[in-house]
Amino acid sequence: MIIVDILICLVLLAAGVGAMLQRNLVASSVLVGVVSLMVSILFLRIGAPDVAMTEAAIGAGLSTVIFLIAVRRTEEEEQ
């Protein structure tokens, strides 16, 4: 089971660093959605199903949509 933990942490770190280094803000919000997904699995792994369900309910649809609406109303490229 340790291999699942290592894999999830690897995806988490890669997506997190990628979200920081991107110039396009929409791509960053997609990568933040991936980070939220991996964090939800990790919460389930350490035995906290309530927190995992909260993270899933908010990070799956709502968080990405709010970021996209905010990016649509302002600029798209980071200076």
């Binding site: 959605g33 939800s40 799956a60 649809g61 990405t64 996209l68 649509r72």
Partner: peptide, 24 residues
């Protein structure tokens, strides 16, 4: 068994992010 509820939530809600990206 209680861990299955979290999988249900993700299964139902996950397509909203992709739809909102497509609508963007």
């Amino acid at each position: 068994v209680i861990y299955l509820d979290v999988a249900l939530v993700y299964g139902i809600l996950s397509f909203l992010g992709v739809i909102s990206l497509a609508r963007y």
